[in-house]
């Protein structure tokens, strides 16, 4: 049997503006064969993690343009881990300075992409990461 499709949650936390970028990414990932759960604007970190848990996603992608990345990424990572979702890839995009990216990676986020990144790069990265993480997830469900 072939592997089930990659499931990814696309969310735009915080209070800022429009979600055009997030929708473009969602459509691109769908066209690459992924099941994309789109949760829209103004989600809190807790809501995003509840959705990730219920939807059993492989990855969470955040679209951030408000400069709130230094709060949202670490907070969501923390909540994901606490919910037993340590295997879930946390990635995303927005205008994020290089030094912040490095710090966020240290705090458990994956690669973060700038505006205008081709969808293909995103797709490659997510596929590679999920292939690496799924075995860990499956092993976690079984007793020693």
């Amino acid at each position: 049997m072939s592997d089930p499709p990659i499931r990814i949650l696309i969310a735009k936390p915080g209070l800022d503006g429009h979600d055009r970028g997030a929708k473009v990414v969602a459509q691109g990932l769908r066209d690459a064969g992924m099941e994309v759960i789109y949760t829209g604007l103004r989600q809190t970190a807790e809501q995003i993690v509840k959705a990730a848990l219920e939807e059993d996603v492989d990855a969470v992608g955040l679209s951030l343009h408000s400069g709130a990345h230094m709060t949202f990424f670490p907070r969501i990572r923390e909540l994901l881990d606490a919910a037993g979702l340590g295997h879930v890839l946390l990635t995303g995009g927005g205008i994020i300075p290089e030094e912040d990216k490095r710090e966020l990676r240290r705090l458990g986020a994956g690669m973060l992409f700038g505006p205008g990144t081709p969808i293909a790069s995103l797709v490659d990265y997510i596929r590679k990461e999920v292939a690496r993480r799924r075995p860990a997830r499956d092993a976690a469900g079984e007793p020693e």
Binding site: R30, V36, Y38
Partner: peptide, 10 residues
Amino acid sequence: TGGALLGDRH
């Protein structure tokens, strides 16, 4: 493609 955009939860 087998992909899907699941938008009801939104």
